[in-house]
């Protein structure tokens, strides 16, 4: 090795090392900031009061988030109730039944839909859904129902794309064996393919629920953002994310207000973490049984 080569070797290695360290540093600082400021919110408001109370008063500096947690969960679960069955049906259709031509049109369309900015969905909700709900069901129109419908449309492409992948990854020998035993295609799908794709299907639901609970902008635009417990589907409400969206500019000076938003973020993170761990657990179990 010449001197020059040795030099560039060392330079290259240290350069790579520096970049990797910066990435690691970014990672650690994100975790550090979220946990530090989140815990400060717990400390300043009292842990139990912050989580189980229901007041959010910027003037008095008292913050608690129970209505936000309820709002987030209601909206997410409501969206999943509809988008999971619809999404799985489409995935089965695309993976097993659809002719090649139909698939070649639908799949790219779904890929594009996944990438469409959430503000566009929010805008559509504002213009089409909110007035419709106001006129036909009463209330201000800005409501949980509007948020749920917008979310359904937003997470469907994600569920379909992921679920279709997992259905396609079931070995075709399983399917052929079942068909050879005289089962119909429908029986094969129901008794062989879907159970085998279970772990992938579950993680597609988890991914979608992560997207749903983390979605901020579209929900903020249609949910009305009132800090109350929702009593019916046409009531406005507020979620953990839309709360952050509405106040982040105002709170960008620091202090207890910003900490309280970080507290919301930390709770959000906790929920996402539980979802991820569950899907990780299912995935591992799925591997063992197959």
């Amino acid at each position: 090795m010449s001197k020059h080569e040795q030099f560039s070797e060392k330079l290259g290695k240290s350069l790579i090392f520096i970049f990797a360290s910066i990435s690691l540093l970014i990672l650690l600082s994100i975790v550090f900031f979220i946990f530090r400021d989140g815990f400060l919110a717990f400390k300043e408001n009292g842990f139990f009061h912050f989580i189980f109370g229901h007041d959010w008063n910027v003037q008095d500096n008292t913050f608690s988030v129970l209505p936000l947690i309820v709002g987030s969960l209601v909206v997410t679960i409501g969206a999943l109730l509809f988008s999971v069955p619809i999404g799985f049906s489409c995935a089965v259709f695309l993976a097993e039944i659809a002719p090649e031509k139909v698939r070649n049109i639908v799949k790219p369309a779904i890929d594009i839909l996944v990438g469409i900015p959430s503000v566009v969905f929010g805008l559509l909700g504002m213009i089409l859904l909110v007035p419709y709900i106001r006129d036909h069901y009463g209330g201000p129109g800005l409501s949980i129902l509007a948020a749920i419908i917008v979310l359904i449309l937003m997470i469907l492409p994600t569920i379909i794309a992921q679920a279709e992948d997992s259905i396609r990854s079931v070995p075709s020998s399983f399917k052929n064996a079942s068909l050879a035993m005289g089962a119909t295609h429908l029986q094969t799908i129901w008794n062989v393919i879907l159970p085998c794709a279970k772990s992938g299907l579950v993680s597609s639901v988890m991914l979608a629920s992560g997207r749903a609970i983390g979605e901020a902008m579209a929900i903020y635009m249609v949910i009305g953002n009132t800090f109350t417990f929702p009593k019916s589907l046409i009531d406005p409400s507020r979620t953990l994310t839309s709360n952050i969206v509405g106040q982040i500019e105002e709170a960008a000076v620091g202090g207890t207000h910003l900490h309280a938003l970080f507290g919301c973020g930390l709770i959000l993170l906790f929920i996402v973490f539980i979802l991820n761990s569950y899907s990780f657990f299912i995935k591992r179990r799925g591997c063992r049984s197959c």
């Binding site: 994100i30 983390g214 982040i248 910003l258 938003l261 959000l268």
Partner: peptide, 12 residues
């Protein structure tokens, strides 16, 4: 992680 949390981190 939800992208809004990165927004909080960016502010802080």
């Amino acid at each position: 992680i939800p992208s809004i949390i990165f927004g909080l981190f960016g502010v802080a």
